[in-house]
Measured scan of single mutants.
Amino acid sequence: DETGKFLVLALYDYQEKSPREVTMKKGDILTLLNSTNKDWWKVEVNGRQGFVPAAYVKFL
C-alpha cells in the first residue's frame, strides 16, 4: 500500500555515479521518499533507495 507516498515519473535515463544514487530508465515509476533538496530527490526504484536529479523526474 503506497498511501501517503508520491510517485514520480523518470523523464530521462540516469546512471548512478555514486553509491548514494540509483539508476533509473526513462518511463520508470519511482516512489518519492524525500524532495526537500531542490536538486536531488531521494527515491525508491526496483527495491533500492537513493538519489536522482530532481530535474529528471516529474510528479504523476
Rank of each mutant, 00 (worst) to 15 (best):
D1H: 13
D1P: 15
D1G: 14
E2P: 13
E2K: 11
E2Y: 05
E2H: 13
E2F: 06
E2A: 14
T3W: 12
G4C: 10
G4S: 14
K5L: 12
F6T: 14
L7D: 05
L7W: 10
L7N: 07
L7H: 10
L7F: 15
V8A: 11
V8D: 00
L9K: 09
L9E: 13
A10F: 02
A10V: 08
A10Y: 02
A10E: 00
L11V: 09
L11K: 07
L11S: 04
L11Y: 04
Y12G: 06
Y12Q: 12
Y12I: 10
D13V: 02
Y14G: 01
Y14T: 01
Y14A: 01
Y14S: 01
Y14R: 03
Q15W: 14
Q15M: 14
E16Y: 04
E16L: 07
E16N: 07
K17S: 14
S18Q: 08
S18F: 06
S18N: 13
P19K: 09
P19W: 07
P19S: 09
P19I: 10
R20V: 14
E21T: 07
E21I: 03
V22C: 06
V22P: 01
T23F: 03
T23A: 07
T23D: 04
T23R: 05
M24V: 12
M24P: 00
M24W: 02
K25A: 09
K25I: 08
K26S: 07
K26V: 08
G27R: 02
G27P: 00
G27T: 02
G27D: 06
D28V: 04
D28I: 03
D28H: 04
D28A: 07
I29F: 06
I29N: 03
I29D: 01
L30T: 01
L30W: 01
L30I: 09
T31S: 09
T31W: 11
T31C: 09
T31R: 10
L32S: 02
L32H: 02
L33P: 00
L33G: 01
L33R: 04
L33V: 14
L33W: 05
N34K: 07
N34C: 09
N34G: 07
S35Y: 11
S35I: 09
T36P: 04
T36H: 14
T36Y: 11
T36Q: 12
N37S: 09
N37F: 08
N37A: 09
K38M: 10
K38E: 11
K38A: 12
K38W: 06
K38Q: 11
D39F: 14
D39P: 03
D39N: 13
D39V: 14
D39I: 14
W40D: 01
W40L: 03
W40V: 03
W40T: 02
W40I: 03
W41M: 05
W41R: 02
W41Y: 11
K42G: 06
K42L: 15
K42V: 15
K42S: 07
V43C: 05
V43I: 07
E44L: 08
E44D: 09
E44C: 09
E44V: 08
E44W: 05
V45R: 13
V45G: 07
V45Q: 09
V45L: 14
N46Y: 08
N46K: 10
G47R: 05
G47H: 06
G47F: 05
R48A: 07
R48Q: 08
R48D: 04
R48G: 04
Q49D: 06
Q49I: 13
Q49C: 08
Q49R: 12
G50D: 00
G50H: 02
G50A: 03
F51M: 09
F51V: 07
F51E: 04
F51L: 11
F51C: 08
F51N: 03
F51Y: 15
V52D: 00
P53Q: 02
P53R: 03
P53I: 02
P53E: 01
A54Y: 03
A54T: 06
A54C: 06
A55Q: 13
A55V: 10
A55D: 10
Y56I: 06
Y56W: 07
Y56V: 06
Y56Q: 06
Y56T: 08
V57P: 00
K58W: 09
K58C: 11
K58A: 14
F59K: 14
F59P: 13
F59L: 15
L60N: 05
L60H: 09
L60C: 09
L60V: 11
